[in-house]
């Protein structure tokens, strides 16, 4: 069974938002909303500064509180790749999952359902990379099966120093950032 995850190389990423814009067009994300976004973290004082740029989205957590809190089962872990998805027709828009996500990865779609990154499952099932991954001009993003030790993502995680966001929130996120 595949377990999809992402690896993002913060050394190469320039924070250009191409991933954000590609997601918008690919997935018809409504104006004023976004499924992915860029975080910048600047530490130090001039000139000894350190900037960490992170392209962020739903982490498709291994322990997703957004799924456990959902009263209808709309939020669920999909068989294919253990991707966390929302079934729009089951969602009542109670927003518990928005509150449950430590990453604030979800939003309410103007049509009334909770929405977020799908890992572009509609592309992945066709053998394509997620839209954000496929456009990144710096090739900073990698996508694949974390359970396959030979996958590029697994190899990158094994070979490079990395971090995840808010590890102590306990959700076991599946997006890994290379330092």
């Amino acid at each position: 069974m595949a377990r999809f995850g992402m690896v993002i190389d913060t050394r190469k990423c320039v924070g250009c938002m191409d991933c954000v814009i590609a997601c918008k067009t690919e997935n018809d994300v409504p104006d004023g909303h976004c499924r992915d976004w860029i975080g910048q973290r600047l530490q130090g004082t001039m000139p000894d500064l350190r900037l960490t740029i992170t392209s962020e989205r739903c982490n498709h957590c291994d322990r997703p509180p957004c799924v456990t809190c959902c009263p209808t089962g709309a939020s669920h872990v999909h068989d294919f790749g253990k991707v966390v998805l929302v079934d729009h027709d089951k969602c009542i828009g109670c927003k518990a999952c928005l509150a449950a996500c430590p990453y604030d990865a979800r939003f309410v779609h103007p049509d009334g359902y909770a929405d977020k990154c799908t890992f572009c499952i509609h592309r992945v099932e066709k053998g394509l990379a997620p839209a954000c991954v496929s456009v990144c001009p710096t090739h900073s993003m990698y996508f694949g099966d974390l359970d396959d030790p030979d996958s590029e993502v697994s190899r990158l995680i094994a070979s490079r120093r990395h971090f995840v966001l808010k590890p102590d929130a306990g959700t076991q996120p599946r997006i890994f950032y290379l330092e």
């Binding site: 004023g32 909303h33 976004w37 860029i38 975080g39 910048q40 927003k95 604030d104 939003f107 309410v108």
Partner: peptide, 18 residues
């Protein structure tokens, strides 16, 4: 000094959950 910047701007979620 720590400066955090995000480009996210989802209604009901940003700048803080409401």
């Amino acid at each position: 000094m720590l400066e955090l910047v995000t480009t996210r701007h989802n209604p009901l979620v940003d700048p803080s959950l409401h």
